[in-house]
């Protein structure tokens, strides 16, 4: 008699819809209900490393801004450590490395403040270049989209990055590279996300 392996099936995804803010960022929906909303402070006050801001816009296949998206970000600290019990090492007190960001209802622009993450040990001892993981949900997105933000000024590390390395097309790889500029003495990285069309952003099945 054969024993069949028995696994449950994952609960299927459904779109977050246009009113995702009510659940995950109610202040943006227009009302205050919780003592604290989650994901507003990514790095905390004690985090070491370079303070950065990342900004961008999400656009659809017509090139129009997506004004009702919610982005979640997940990143390591400046030492390349994730605030998680399975990742060896300690992070600064107050560093969570996780945040929620919404696109502006009027303009579609988004932005968040954090610290630049350090390189993270990848599979088989291959070091991954500094990167921020991102998950994007919105009306019209049936299953959340995963991507990564890399930094243009880390070109040497990017060239050796094992994840960028599996993207066959140099032109597509460029969609994951945030471009720095300086504004009022602060480093701002620009990371536009194109859901579809010319220079569609690389999304990962993780």
């Amino acid at each position: 008699m054969l024993q069949q392996p028995h696994y449950l099936k994952e609960t299927p995804s459904q779109t977050a819809g246009p009113y995702v803010h009510i659940g995950l960022a109610p202040g943006a929906a227009g009302f205050e209900i919780f003592d604290q909303e989650l994901g507003r402070d990514i790095a905390g006050p004690n985090a070491k490393g370079e303070r950065i801001r990342v900004e961008g816009m999400v656009t659809d296949g017509t090139g129009s801004p997506v004004k009702d998206a919610l982005l979640e970000i997940w990143q390591a600290n400046a030492d390349g450590i994730y605030a998680h019990p399975e990742h060896a090492g300690a992070v600064e007190d107050g560093f969570r490395g996780w945040g929620r960001v919404i696109t502006d209802f009027g303009t579609g622009e988004w932005g968040f403040d954090s610290v630049k993450p350090g390189p993270v040990m990848g599979r088989n001892g291959n070091i991954m270049a500094p990167h921020i993981n991102m998950w994007i949900v919105a009306r019209g997105i049936n299953t959340g989209l995963n991507t990564r933000i890399y930094f243009e000024d880390e070109d040497e590390a990017n060239a050796a990055d094992p994840v960028l390395g599996i993207i066959e097309w140099e032109r597509r790889r460029q969609t994951l590279i945030a471009k720095p500029s300086i504004r009022n003495g602060q480093t701002i990285y620009r990371f536009d996300i194109r859901l579809q069309g010319q220079d569609e952003t690389v999304f990962f099945d993780i």
């Binding site: 296949g61 859901l195 099945d205």
Partner: peptide, 24 residues
């Protein structure tokens, strides 16, 4: 979904620490 769905296949990624960890 028609204008918000990516057209290219997703790039399949073997899990690293970046995917296995998450906020607590």
């Amino acid at each position: 979904s028609v204008t918000r769905a990516p057209q290219y296949p997703l790039i399949s990624l073997e899990n690293t620490a970046s995917e296995i960890t998450g906020p607590v």
